[in-house]
Amino acid sequence: MLKKLFFVALLLLCGAANVSAQTMRLATYNIRYDNKQDTTNAWGKRLPYLTDLIKFQDFDLFGTQEVLYNQLQDMAGKLPGYAHIGVGRDDGKQAGEFSAIFYKKDKYKLLKQGTFWLAPNTTAPVKGWDAALPRICTWGQFQDTKTGFTFYMFNTHFDHVGVEARRESAKLILAKVKQMAGTTPAILSGDFNVDQRNESYTLLNTSGVMKDAFTTAKVVYAPNGTFNNFNTKTKTDSRIDHIFLTSAFTPTRYGILTDTYGGGKTPSDHYPVAIEVQYSAKK
């Protein structure tokens, strides 16, 4: 009997030894589209500070919003360690804003990718419900090249006008996560254009599918809200940029990065949200 118990314990220890805790750094960043009326905050002036921030923070993957094709090319040129996925929302190619996902190309293998529109017809560039603009969600299935850990990342930008559109978009994305990822670990990042007190945020956070990393992280650094309108004097607790996680991920750190340059300028009119998560993966 004792020998049998010893053998079982040994098997359990061997199984535990083959599973290790891994760490991943994630972010979501609305970079502000290249608006020619932005003079002091022109894209060309902001670009090097924005990409330097990303490199310094050493994100493994990050979702972006409001990215025009020329900005996508500019960022790719300054971030050679990253590959990216995504399409323009206006034609499914290069027109309109992207919700691109960037990932470290030496660390992750892209298994699948796609984009769906936030509308009853998810396959065409259309506006959904009462939305003012076409809205999309870009997704990728990734695999860690060392451990084989496989996961999904979804990245989106909800409409800024349509209340019904935001509500239905939240329901649609939850359905897509359940349908596509199933029990596979999943991440949802984005600019949701609503804060933590809003109905569509609550739909996501209380769904039982995913939780906002802010609500469960062990260490939280949130000196401000996430939208700054290029004004660092704006003070709010309103968070409209979020990262939601399935239960496979344990957020250890959450931060709203309020970096500035040039005497108080911000790289975007949104502050990026950055998190560190732990997860278990087989060696």
Rank of each mutant, 00 (worst) to 15 (best):
213 A>S: 03
143 Q>P: 03
144 D>L: 00
198 N>E: 15
179 Q>R: 14
204 L>C: 00
167 R>N: 15
190 G>W: 11
169 S>K: 14
175 A>H: 14
152 Y>C: 03
186 A>K: 09
215 T>G: 02
135 R>I: 06
214 F>D: 01
166 R>S: 05
156 T>A: 12
151 F>L: 04
210 M>S: 01
197 R>Q: 15
140 G>W: 12
206 T>E: 13
160 H>E: 10
212 D>F: 01
140 G>I: 02
196 Q>Y: 14
154 F>L: 05
184 T>E: 07
216 T>E: 04
188 L>K: 03
199 E>Y: 14
197 R>P: 07
222 A>F: 04
207 S>G: 10
136 I>T: 13
159 D>V: 02
205 N>I: 11
208 G>C: 04
211 K>A: 11
152 Y>M: 02
207 S>D: 07
165 A>P: 10
219 V>L: 06
134 P>H: 02
218 K>Y: 01
157 H>W: 07
194 V>L: 13
163 V>Y: 14
210 M>K: 02
142 F>M: 05
171 K>S: 12
141 Q>Y: 05
154 F>R: 03
159 D>R: 10
190 G>K: 06
197 R>E: 14
167 R>I: 13
163 V>W: 13
134 P>N: 00
173 I>Q: 03
176 K>F: 13
219 V>F: 05
170 A>F: 04
156 T>M: 10
136 I>F: 05
214 F>C: 00
143 Q>F: 09
218 K>V: 07
189 S>E: 04
132 A>E: 12
216 T>A: 01
191 D>Q: 06
209 V>T: 11
160 H>K: 05
163 V>R: 15
185 P>E: 00
181 A>N: 08
209 V>M: 01
141 Q>N: 04
155 N>A: 06
137 C>G: 04
161 V>K: 14
205 N>Q: 06
193 N>P: 04
213 A>T: 01
184 T>Y: 12
181 A>F: 09
146 K>G: 10
167 R>S: 15
138 T>A: 00
190 G>L: 11
176 K>Y: 15
207 S>C: 04
186 A>V: 03
188 L>H: 07
164 E>T: 14
213 A>C: 02
213 A>M: 00
212 D>L: 05
201 Y>T: 09
158 F>E: 04
132 A>N: 11
184 T>H: 10
181 A>T: 11
219 V>W: 01
175 A>E: 14
137 C>F: 08
145 T>A: 06
196 Q>G: 13
140 G>L: 07
180 M>F: 15
190 G>E: 04
209 V>H: 00
203 L>M: 12
188 L>V: 08
195 D>Y: 03
143 Q>K: 10
202 T>A: 15
169 S>C: 09
153 M>K: 06
195 D>M: 09
141 Q>I: 06
150 T>E: 11
194 V>Y: 12
197 R>T: 15
139 W>P: 01
159 D>S: 05
218 K>N: 05
177 V>Q: 03
185 P>Y: 02
137 C>Q: 07
219 V>Y: 02
174 L>K: 10
182 G>T: 07
165 A>S: 13
164 E>Y: 12
154 F>D: 04
148 G>N: 02
185 P>K: 01
145 T>G: 05
